[in-house]
């Protein structure tokens, strides 16, 4: 439907507003309206980081924001990882939704790759 709205754009062309043409001219009415949307300035783009090729010998971080029950799920993930990859280390982290640049940099030094889960 978004495409539909775009296809109806008139640009800055002047058009009659809710103008009803007489039957002799055309059987239509046009309603011209202004766009209510606030433009979202695009943030600087970051591509996802290159992936690890396999998990053997790697450290996998698990970050969770503490929302109820998430620990039960992540405990399960950690168990399965440890069973499948005995040479893979897992490290658990807990903190706010927005972990902040400083904390992210600290964790980056400790892990090769990471799962991030809000709990929702």
């Amino acid at each position: 439907m978004h495409k539909h709205i775009k296809s109806l754009l008139l640009g800055l062309a002047v058009a009659p507003v809710l103008a009803v043409c007489t039957p002799a001219l055309a059987q239509s009415a046009t309603l011209e309206v202004m766009n209510p949307r606030g433009e979202i300035p695009p943030p600087p783009f970051h591509a996802p980081s290159p992936r690890v090729t396999d998990l053997a010998g790697k450290t996998v971080g698990i970050y969770w924001i503490g929302k109820a029950g998430g620990d039960n799920f992540w405990d399960g993930v950690e168990e399965v990882l440890n069973e499948r990859f005995p040479n893979t280390k897992t490290v658990r982290y807990e903190g706010p939704f927005d972990l902040g640049e400083k904390r992210a940099q600290e964790i980056a030094k400790e892990v090769d790759t990471i799962f991030y889960g809000v709990g929702d």
Partner: peptide, 24 residues
């Protein structure tokens, strides 16, 4: 994933045309 398409935006005015004012 490395080079996604840029998001497009809607600018300018928008027209709706119908057989009657009520339809528009």
């Amino acid at each position: 994933e490395s080079n996604p398409k840029k998001r497009s935006s809607v600018t300018g005015t928008i027209a709706f045309t119908g057989d009657t004012p009520e339809a528009a």
